[in-house]
Simulated scan of single mutants.
Amino acid sequence: MDKPRLLDQVRDALRVRHYSLRTEATYIQWIKRFILFHGKRHPLEMGEQEITAFLTHLAVDKHVSPSTQNQALAAILFLYKEVLARELDWMEDIVRAKRTERIPEVMSPEQVRRLLDQLEGTHQLMARLIYGTGMRLMEAVRLRVRDVDFHYRQITVRNGKGNKDRVTVLPGLLFEPLKAHMARVKALHEKDLADGFGHVYLPYALARKYPNAEREWGWQYVFPASTRSTDPRSGAVRRHHVFEQNLQRAIKQAVMNLGLPGRVSTHTLRHSFATHLLEGGSDIRTVQELLGHADVKTTMIYTHVLQRGGRGVMSPLDRL
């Protein structure tokens, strides 16, 4: 039996370790670029010098950001460590780009209201949910019905950043619109079932462990796509979650219409959630838990946004 091609080996290694489809595509792309940059040489023929040359090319010639450069490095190191089983001392000496620390963009409550009012339908509901819960964009689009708890007024975020679960608050103002939305989604799911579909993607072989779960209402996405599509891994025809760029585009257009200053995006709503909680007197440890930050130092960055201009101290000029 022929040995699988290198990139197929990479895919297999990623899937065995339960990396997301998004990460799989990103890692494959960077490994391809690394090999092509060095004239299609096999990675086993290369080492520290070639990796450093590629990263330098990205920084100097392509002007990529430090986070993008580190992403490329992570993909290449995965190739050497997990696929080629090449654990060498020089891997630890590869210099990682230093990430630029920036104060997050935050909107005022009034700007948030104007932005949300500019949106319509499902886009408005999703944006309100992100601002009201502090969820990341992908956490919102991947939200399952079973993880919305109206009784305890909370949402369970599954497999968030760092593959961790957490609980965040469910705003009371969203009870009725969210229930109405989910009623429409349930009707759509029942139609899918009647048409012989109604299956949803389940992670970590849950579909094999619980054969009927993928058809159950509780496992369906709260924000499903408008059409069914073919799963690129299994080939199964399913209704996946909504395409996240749809909301990003809607918010971008709303920002242009309103003429809001700064770089406002879906993530700005999450930043605003954290900052407005702190402004309202919430404990920083509580905000840390709601956001899912592993270290409180990450949450501390929002304290720099409060009362901008010298971290809240009063300028001596204002005392004259």
Rank of each mutant, 00 (worst) to 15 (best):
M1V: 12
K3H: 10
L6A: 10
L7K: 04
Q9Y: 01
V10C: 10
R11P: 00
L14E: 03
T23K: 09
A25Y: 06
T26P: 03
Y27K: 04
Y27G: 02
I28V: 15
I31E: 09
F34T: 03
L36G: 03
F37L: 09
H38W: 11
Q49V: 15
E50T: 03
T52M: 08
H57T: 01
H63R: 15
V64H: 01
V64N: 01
L79T: 09
Y80Q: 02
E82C: 11
L88N: 10
W90N: 02
M91P: 01
I94G: 03
T100I: 14
R113F: 05
L119I: 14
H123C: 13
Q124G: 00
Y131V: 05
R136K: 07
R136D: 02
L137K: 00
V148F: 02
V148Q: 02
F150N: 05
H151Y: 12
T156D: 05
R158V: 11
N159C: 02
N163L: 11
R166V: 05
P171G: 07
P171T: 09
G172Y: 06
M182Y: 08
M182K: 08
M182H: 04
R184W: 00
E190F: 06
A194W: 06
G196L: 14
G196M: 14
F197R: 13
P203R: 12
A205K: 15
R238A: 02
H240W: 03
V242F: 11
F243E: 13
E244M: 08
R249C: 01
V255M: 03
M256Y: 09
G259W: 05
G262R: 07
H267F: 13
F273D: 03
A274V: 01
L277G: 10
S282R: 04
S282E: 07
R285Q: 04
V287A: 09
E289K: 13
L290A: 01
D295H: 14
I301K: 07
G309T: 06
R311K: 15
G312P: 11
M314H: 08
L317H: 07
L320M: 15
L320A: 06
